[in-house]
Design a protein around this nucleic acid. Structure first.
Lengths: 202, 202
DNA sequence: TGGTTTTCATGAACACTGTTCAATTTTAAG
DNA sequence: CTTAAAATTGAACAGTGTTCATGAAAACCA
């Protein structure tokens, strides 16, 4: 390589992300290490550090593509639904399905803890905001009068779905063992929104 | 020490858990290591392995006391509430408060992943079941006719509260940043239960 | 008391991890 | 062809969890 060869730079970055993604998808987040990536690619560890500042940056880049995949999935699944309630229920189902199909990659997103004192990079934050905006937009018709309450509803639903998926995936607190996450997700979305409507009628 | 000195055995175990708990509480789960515990206690690493089979067992034991503390907290806070709805809202508030006050210790519970293929030890599973039973019992009066639906409601609420707290604590998806977790928790519990009731009326 | 046996404590050793960096090779420019 | 810049390398450093042969100490028995 010589001076200013940015082509190779981008190529190596892509390869690293590709290998890292496949490793996580197949063997889980615990088995991801710089050394293993280097061995699989066939280069030295230092080479990777020439293109990523550390492992965290690799993880965040992988997570970024996972978030993009989720967004595409949600956008595709909730294309044009007549009923707003049905659309949000469908959103929940899509989210649960995505978690199931991308177990290890989604775990990597959830497990990631940003270094204390630092904030998410702007490009990453934007992805999260976009994803959340999707939910807010879908919830808006159901609480038409009040946009503040629409946003709160979106936050509750988003967090609630996250909780159901997180417990379902880890099996940790055994809460979701008996009943499928899909059933719980539908129950959450339907009844929460029903409750919002009922509250508005009082 | 000599043969059959169970007193020292239990004493050392207690000390290890004490030191581990304080370390996590003050510096977070990432800074927990066998070597640091040993140094803090003033013994060799091998000594700890004489009393715990590995770090995972230490973590699970710490988590066990955290779960006990949460259970005590919830039991105390939701002592005798007349209204079932108010009681469940209170439960949510207590849960959120507990997460706030025991940030690092509760993170340790959430972050723990059990080794693939293995299941939670019986004594740990029992704690989780007890905790969950608390929610189920409180939800029962609100869906009196159907115990199956009561359990589902409990699962949804439990998972939902977990999601709100998890996102609030990590600040990861920035969902809970604008509004406090307490507000979201109350919204979740109130409207979900209101929805359940409305559904039953149809 | 002395000798024996069981039990416990020790820390070096092993196999890992992320990260750094001086030395080397490769490549491009002049 | 020389030179300088850039990219690659892998040894080195500071960590991690875990194991285990060795030595010390305590308890049992005579």
């Amino acid at each position: 390589m010589g001076r200013g060869q940015k082509v190779e730079y981008g190529q190596l970055r892509a390869t690293v992300i590709e290998v890292a993604t496949e490793t996580v998808r197949e063997h889980g987040s615990a088995s991801l290490s710089i050394r293993k990536i280097a061995k699989k690619i066939g280069c030295a560890v230092g080479t990777i550090y020439n293109v990523f500042s550390n492992l965290d940056e690799i993880v965040m880049t992988v997570n970024s593509t996972t978030l993009s995949a989720l967004q595409s999935r949600l956008l595709a699944d909730t294309g044009q639904k007549e009923d707003a309630l049905a659309a949000l229920i469908g959103l929940g189902q899509s989210y649960v399905a995505f978690c199931r199909e991308n177990f290890n990659l989604w775990s990597l997103v959830l497990e990631h803890k940003l270094a204390p004192g630092s904030t998410l990079p702007e490009w990453h934050q934007q992805q999260v905001d976009d994803l959340f905006l999707l939910v807010t937009r879908m919830a808006a018709p159901l609480v038409a009068d009040d946009s503040e309450r629409a946003e709160r509803a979106a936050r509750v639903l988003w967090a609630g779905l996250h909780g159901i998926c997180a417990l379902a995936m880890s099996g940790k607190l055994d809460v979701v063992h008996a009943e499928s996450a899909e059933v719980l997700a539908e129950s959450l979305v339907r009844n929460y929104l029903l409750g919002l409507r009922a509250e508005g009628m009082v």
